[in-house]
Amino acid sequence: MKISLTHYWYCFRGILTREYLRFIQQRTRFFSALVRPLLWLVVFAAGFRAALGIAIIEPYETYITYEVYIAPGLCCMILLFNGMQSSLSMVYDREMGSMRVLLMSPLPRWFLLVCKLISIALVSLLQVYAFLIIALLVAVEPPLWGYLSVLPALLLVAVMLGAIGLFISSWIKQLENFAGVMNFVIFPMFFLSSALYPLWKMQEASEWIYWICIANPFTYAVELVRHALYLKFDSVAFSVTLATTLVFSVLAITGFNPQRAAAGTGKKPN
């Protein structure tokens, strides 16, 4: 039987449906993923509100509260945790069985992995929107159209982070558990970016931290989302995010090796 374009479409739809069904089955995971950014928004931001003066910076047109400033960074934090967690489990332990099923499809492996990354990303967006709705309670009120214009930005960022996660799981053997990824990837990526403080604040504090933030792709992801949420387009942030997504997708897909994953679980085939 010849493979047609509809095969590809059905396959993508099937993978997306499965991710969605698993998502709605795992409500506790959904809520616990929301608790983390909400704590930052409500507790951390409340404490810092007085300590940190935010000048009028792009894309905001007035003085803003600290909650408003960190909300886009926290949206990206949700995507960062989800992307890393999902990619890690694609390669190791729990998901390996379902990866085997996925790889039994006759369609090319690169296509299956791209579908998986996009599906995970789309499902993660539901969590981001749930967070943004709750954030209304602490007066994080972007323009109504911002909720729509931020969608493609969030999707691109989610795919980028999923691809980085898959790349890390495939290439860096030492980081095969989530604690390692959290300490050496998630936290440095998040803290050394513009998620919590504007870059000029970072520069005031330390020149070299500022330069690390400038080199961190997560900074551009956060700025892309921040601008899109307020109906602005940051072309530099978009270009860097897109380029990072493409580079890491290619590296992740070429480096994906189910054989190493099987060995990583300690269940080396007999």
Binding site: T6, H7, C11, T17, L21, S98, L102
Partner: peptide
């Protein structure tokens, strides 16, 4: 997938094969 129904599991596989 333990948390999905038999039908959902089979439908997923069918879609992977273009059905």
């Amino acid at each position: 997938d333990l948390d999905l129904s038999v039908q959902q599991n089979l439908a997923y596989h069918a879609s992977l094969h273009g059905l």
